[in-house]
Deep mutational scan, measured.
Amino acid sequence: VTLFVALYDYEARTEDDLSAHKGEKFQILNSSEGDWWEARSLTTGETGYIPSNYVAPV
C-alpha cells in the first residue's frame, strides 16, 4: 500500500477530482497518469484524482 499525506488543501474542480484537506492520508491507486494521481481517501473512502504535487509520502 502506497500512502501519501496532503500537504495543502485542494478543492475538487471536476467530478473526477477528489478534494483533500491538509494532513489527510491517501492510498495511491494509480500514479501513471502524470501530474494527477488516482487516490482513495483513508478518511472518507472516496476515490478520485488529486494533484501529485499536493501530497508527499508518509
Rank of each mutant, 00 (worst) to 15 (best):
F4V: 13
H21K: 15
V5G: 01
N30H: 07
N30E: 06
S31V: 11
R13T: 11
D35N: 09
T14V: 06
E11D: 09
G45C: 10
H21Y: 14
S31K: 13
F4N: 01
V1I: 13
A12Y: 02
L7I: 11
T14H: 14
T47L: 07
T44A: 02
Y54T: 09
P51H: 09
I28F: 03
Q27D: 05
W36H: 08
W36R: 15
W37N: 01
D17P: 01
S52T: 06
D35H: 11
T44I: 02
G34C: 13
T43S: 12
A56Q: 09
P51S: 06
G23H: 03
G23Q: 02
S41Y: 03
D16E: 12
K25D: 00
K25A: 07
V55P: 00
F4S: 02
L7P: 01
W36K: 14
L29G: 02
S32Y: 09
Y10M: 04
G45R: 04
I50A: 02
E24D: 09
W37F: 09
P57R: 07
S32Q: 12
T14A: 11
D9Y: 06
S52W: 12
R13Y: 07
N53A: 14
F26Y: 04
F26Q: 00
W36L: 11
G45L: 06
T43N: 08
T14W: 12
L42V: 09
F4Q: 01
Q27K: 06
S41I: 04
R40L: 10
W37E: 00
V5Q: 06
P57Y: 05
L29R: 04
E38T: 11
Y8G: 05
S52P: 05
Y10P: 00
W36I: 10
A12I: 03
Y10F: 15
S31H: 10
N53T: 11
T43Y: 09
S52K: 15
L3S: 07
D9E: 07
V1M: 13
R40C: 08
W36F: 12
E46F: 11
I50N: 01
D16I: 13
W36G: 02
T43I: 10
E46L: 14
S31P: 10
I50Q: 01
D16F: 15
A6Q: 01
G23N: 04
D35E: 12
S19A: 08
S19F: 05
G34P: 14
Q27E: 14
T2C: 15
N53F: 12
S41T: 01
Y54S: 11
S32L: 12
D17Q: 15
F4R: 02
A56T: 11
S31M: 15
T47C: 09
E46S: 10
I28S: 01
Y8W: 13
Q27M: 13
A39C: 08
R13P: 07
W36D: 03
H21I: 12
R40Y: 09
R40D: 00
W37Y: 10
D9K: 05
N30R: 08
D16C: 15
K22Q: 08
I50F: 03
D17M: 13
T14L: 09
N53H: 13
D35P: 09
T2I: 13
S41F: 03
L7W: 03
Y8Q: 08
S19I: 05
Y54D: 00
A56W: 09
S31G: 09
A56E: 09
D17W: 09
E15F: 10
V58I: 13
N30P: 04
V58P: 03
S41M: 03
E15W: 09
T14F: 14
G45D: 04
A20H: 04
T43H: 10
I50H: 02
D17F: 14
F4Y: 14
A56K: 09
V1R: 11
G34Y: 09
T47M: 08
V1L: 13
T2Q: 13
S31R: 13
W37H: 03
S32T: 12
R13C: 14
L3K: 04
D17C: 15
V55K: 00
E46H: 12
S52H: 07
Q27W: 15
Y49I: 08
T47G: 02
H21M: 11
L18F: 05
L3V: 14
Y54I: 15
E15P: 14
V58G: 03
A6K: 00
S41W: 03
I50Y: 01
Y49E: 00
S52M: 09
T47Y: 08
Y54C: 14
G34S: 13
E15K: 13
A39S: 02
A20T: 14
V58M: 11
A39I: 06
A6V: 06
R40M: 12
A6F: 08
V55D: 00
S32P: 10
E24R: 02
Y8C: 15
K25C: 14
I28H: 00
L18Q: 02
E46A: 13
T2F: 12
Y54K: 07
A6H: 01
Y10L: 06
A20K: 01
T47A: 06
E38C: 15
A12M: 04
F26R: 00
L29Q: 04
S19Q: 07
E24V: 03
A20W: 06
G23T: 02
D35M: 11
F26W: 04
G23F: 04
H21N: 08
W36T: 07
S31N: 12
K25I: 15
E24H: 03
G48C: 07
E24F: 05
G48E: 01
K25N: 06
A6G: 02
T2P: 11
E33Y: 11
V1N: 12
R13G: 08
S32K: 11
A12N: 04
V55H: 01
W36S: 07
E33T: 12
E33L: 14
Y8N: 05
V5S: 03
K22H: 05
P57L: 09
E33S: 14
K25V: 15
K22C: 09
N53K: 13
K22L: 06
G45Q: 05
T2R: 13
Y54A: 14
S52A: 13
N30D: 11
P51C: 12
E11K: 11
I50T: 02
G48W: 05
G45M: 06
E15A: 13
E38P: 05
T2G: 11
N53W: 15
S31F: 15
W37T: 02
P51N: 09
L29I: 11
G34K: 13
D35L: 12
A12C: 06
Y54E: 00
T14D: 12
T43E: 14
F4E: 00
S41P: 01
A6E: 01
V5M: 08
K25P: 05
R13M: 11
K22V: 12
H21G: 05
Y10R: 04
V58C: 11
E11T: 12
T44P: 00
D9A: 08
T47H: 07
V1A: 13
G34E: 12
S19R: 07
D9I: 05
E33N: 15
L18M: 10
D17K: 13
T14Q: 09
I28L: 06
E33K: 14
E24G: 03
A6C: 10
A39T: 01
D16L: 14
D17S: 12
A56F: 08
D17Y: 13
D16Y: 15
F4H: 05
L29F: 08
R13W: 07
T2S: 11
L3E: 08
S31E: 09
S52V: 07
D17G: 15
I28Y: 02
K22R: 11
T44C: 03
R40E: 04
N53Q: 11
R40H: 04
D35G: 12
Y10E: 00
T43W: 14
L29K: 05
V58L: 13
Y8S: 06
V5N: 00
K25Q: 12
D16Q: 14
V5H: 04
A39Y: 08
T43V: 11
G23A: 01
L42G: 02
A6I: 06
R40N: 01
V5W: 07
L29N: 04
D9W: 06
G23P: 00
R40A: 04
T14N: 14
R13Q: 14
T43P: 01
K22P: 05
E15Y: 09
Y54G: 06
N30T: 08
T2D: 10
G45I: 04
L3Q: 06
S32V: 10
S52N: 05
E15Q: 12
T47Q: 09
V55M: 13
G23E: 03
H21C: 12
E15H: 11
Y10S: 01
A12E: 02
Y49V: 06
A39Q: 00
